[in-house]
Structures are given as structure tokens and as C-alpha cells.
């Protein structure tokens, strides 16, 4: 893992397929390097299915050192296996683990990025479960959370995307992670900038203007940091 201490919430990704679980860990890990991500895919002999022992070992490792963990599972029996593991686990362990009702890949990415920001168990779980509705075509619901507060204390800014691919997965994760370090709520073109998925959903590419609105004690610092990161092209220009 990274040189820093891992985030307080780890993820266990349970799939019928070893390669699918490992691929999801790779994908989510790129966007959240500070989170302990554990793959538990396939049967003991590498076939399709889920292994109780592999899931149990991953959960045990995930909650070591006082961490909590969110489990994401793909098809039915992966969920059943994960639940069985928690049934048999020490109550102290089971109390710190949640099985998310979430899409496997999208949920893993959203949960990982949220966990990277140091969020607690319930917030990481909510990020995973919210990921399901993110791809249903609904407007980002978090935008409404700012309503009514626009007139007082909102710090605004605008910046043009310089990197060719714009706010794709990696830069979106950089933004969400970076903003987690500020005591501020930030919107970009109406989307909640703490959410990788909402940022990605903007589909903003090179030349697009990002309108930034920030609130909170560190709103100005957050805006400035965001503007600087965009201006630098996320290291891609």
C-alpha cells in the first residue's frame, strides 16, 4: 500500500470471477491509492464461484488494525457467501462490516474514493449504494443540497479544462480526493465535486468551462486549489 496509513474503511470485492475481483481492485485502486482494497474472487482452484475461506480471509484482513469494511459482491451467491461469513464472524468484526447493495464496479469506485477521503463506514456504504442511482439518468441529487445557501457566503470561480480528455476518471478522482482535505462543500457545474461519479457524469472535455461554487470555512482555499489543479491539466498536458 501507500506510505501513509490506510484509510479507516477498507473494501472487500467479492466476485464469482477472480479476474473480475482483481480488475475491480485495480480500477478502484488507481483512483484511491490510500484505501486497502481486497479481492476475493473465484473458487479455491481458480474456477467460477465464491469461496467462503477467501472471503473470510479478506474480511479479516480488511478489519485488522481497527478498520471498518464495506463488502461489494457481484451475483447472488457472492452476496450469500459474504453474509454467511459475517454470520459466523466474531460479533465485534461483524459490527464493523457492511455488505453494500450496490453495482459491483461503480459501487467499488465510488466507495473507494469516498473512503480515500477518510469517510466513516456509513458514508462509504452510502457512496457505494448511491452509485446505483448515478447511472439511472437522474440528475445528481446532491446539487439540491446547496439550495437556499447560494445567496450567502458562496465563493465562485471559473476555469477552463486544458487536458484533452477532461474530467475522466483519474482527474475526477484527483478533484474529489483533493477537496476532501478542505472544510468546504464544492459544486462544479452543479455537480457535487466530492463525488467522482457526478464529476465524470458531467462529461466535461478539453475547452469546457467549469463553474465552481464553494461554501464553508475553507471555501476560498478549496476553490483556489481546484482552479490550480485544472490549470495544471492534472499532469496530462
Amino acid at each position: 500500500m501507500s506510505e501513509r496509513e490506510p484509510a479507516p474503511v477498507a473494501l472487500v470485492l467479492v466476485s464469482h470471477s477472480r479476474t473480475l475481483a482483481e480488475g475491480a481492485v485495480e480500477l478502484a485502486g488507481q483512483m484511491a491509492p490510500g484505501v486497502l482494497l481486497l479481492a476475493a474472487g473465484g473458487t479455491e482452484d481458480g474456477g467460477l464461484g465464491t469461496s467462503f475461506d477467501a472471503v473470510e480471509a479478506a474480511v479479516t484482513q480488511a478489519v485488522a488494525d481497527g478498520r471498518s469494511a464495506v463488502v461489494l459482491a457481484d451475483l447472488g451467491s457472492a452476496v450469500l457467501t459474504a453474509e454467511s461469513v459475517l454470520d459466523l464472524a466474531d460479533p465485534d468484526v461483524a459490527a464493523r462490516v457492511r455488505v453494500a447493495d450496490a453495482p459491483f464496479v461503480e459501487g467499488a469506485v465510488a466507495a473507494a474514493v469516498t473512503a480515500h477521503g477518510g469517510a466513516d463506514l456509513e458514508r462509504v456504504l452510502a457512496a457505494a449504494e448511491h452509485a446505483g442511482t448515478m447511472f439511472g439518468g437522474d440528475a445528481p441529487p446532491a446539487a439540491s443540497a446547496f439550495e437556499g445557501a447560494v445567496d450567502d457566503g458562496v465563493v465562485r470561480g471559473a476555469v477552463v479544462l486544458r487536458n484533452p480528455l477532461g474530467l475522466h476518471a483519474r482527474p475526477a478522482a484527483i478533484v474529489a480526493r483533493m477537496l476532501a482535505g478542505f472544510d468546504a462543500k464544492v459544486r462544479v457545474n452543479g455537480a457535487n465535486a466530492a463525488s467522482v461519479l457526478e464529476l465524470m457524469k458531467l462529461g466535461a472535455t478539453e475547452g469546457a468551462e467549469l463553474r465552481i461554487e464553494a461554501e464553508g470555512p475553507q471555501a476560498a482555499e478549496a476553490r483556489d486549489a481546484l482552479v490550480a489543479a485544472v490549470d495544471e491539466g492534472f499532469g496530462e498536458v
Binding site: 479455491e44 464461484g49 465464491t50 469461496s51 467462503f52 447472488g76 451467491s77 457467501t81 453474509e83 454467511s84
Partner: peptide, 17 residues
């Protein structure tokens, strides 16, 4: 515990439980 560990499909956790 053996069925849960070795079956691999839904029957493992179901019969296991």
C-alpha cells in the same frame, strides 16, 4: 463449514447455513 468453503455456488451458503 466444509460446504460453505468448498461448494462455490449458492448451494454452499444455503446448505451451509
Amino acid at each position: 463449514t466444509t460446504l460453505m468453503s468448498t461448494v462455490g455456488g449458492a448451494a454452499g451458503p444455503l446448505y451451509g447455513t
